[in-house]
Design a protein around this nucleic acid. Structure first.
Lengths: 123, 123
DNA sequence: CAAGTGTATTAAGACTATTAATACGCTTGC
DNA sequence: GCAAGCGTATTAATAGTCTTAATACACTTG
């Protein structure tokens, strides 16, 4: 299902999260797909089950999976994980804007930045 | 000049940075004021000179101090450190906006957030 | 040239993060 | 109901990083 890169300095669970998140976002894993069990994926990748458990916990936290104890982990619908991600991003935006406002960046500068980023090449 | 809090779990150099930055931002230390030397402040706080050196390096990086080798560290003008900080904040804003744009947050939602944060209570 | 300044290098210690070992509790199907 | 599968919790070993210190070097000035 996925391949680990041992030259990568990041922890294993993070690599697993990244790769699975990518598969979900790209649509390779449809909603309600049953994920491989913690043990089987651990065996597959030759790592400890806890490592996979941690990755799955992260993915659940981020809204990409939901867990049913005793049954397994399943992919959430796009609608669900997307709304979670948007909420998270809007918080980031608000925090950045607040700090900019506090130090006295004028509204126009913000608006210009928004315009640049939202400038559609094909209107 | 400053007092350390040993219950604070953060590293010493970070506390020093925070407190000095605060003094500069609040205007307690005027532009071109000579800072205490690395050694004297270290002696004062009973820490290693390298710890103060690291704090000063951070403050220089952030644009609050400038260094003259063999002479000492001096406070930069408000104009200078403010423009540095604004640049940094605008980068943060742009990054957040780009991510929001990429996932499909509509322009209006951004504009609403900007309006809320820039809503002046005394127009 | 001596006393003051900032700087670079190296190493020791503390602390955190990652991973593993192991045992537990829940769900399902026979 | 019980065995085989699942996710979960606890604890510990290990690796790695971060912080701080020790020490020696280089520059400026009176």
């Amino acid at each position: 299902m996925i391949v680990l890169d041992y030259r990568d300095k990041r922890p294993i669970y993070e690599q697993v999260v990244e790769k699975l998140e990518h598969l979900i976002v790209c649509g390779a894993l449809e909603a309600n797909t049953k994920m491989p069990s913690v043990r089987s994926l651990a065996l597959d990748l030759s790592v400890n089950p806890n490592t996979i458990q941690r990755a799955y916990a992260q993915l659940e936290q981020d809204g990409y999976l939901y867990t049913v104890v005793g049954r397994g982990n399943y992919v959430t619908s796009e609608q669900e994980w997307k709304s979670g991600k948007i909420e998270q991003l809007m918080t980031e935006v608000r925090e950045a804007l607040t700090k900019a406002h506090d130090i006295g960046v004028p509204k126009e500068d913000i608006w210009n930045a928004v315009s640049e980023i939202y400038a559609e090449t094909t209107p």
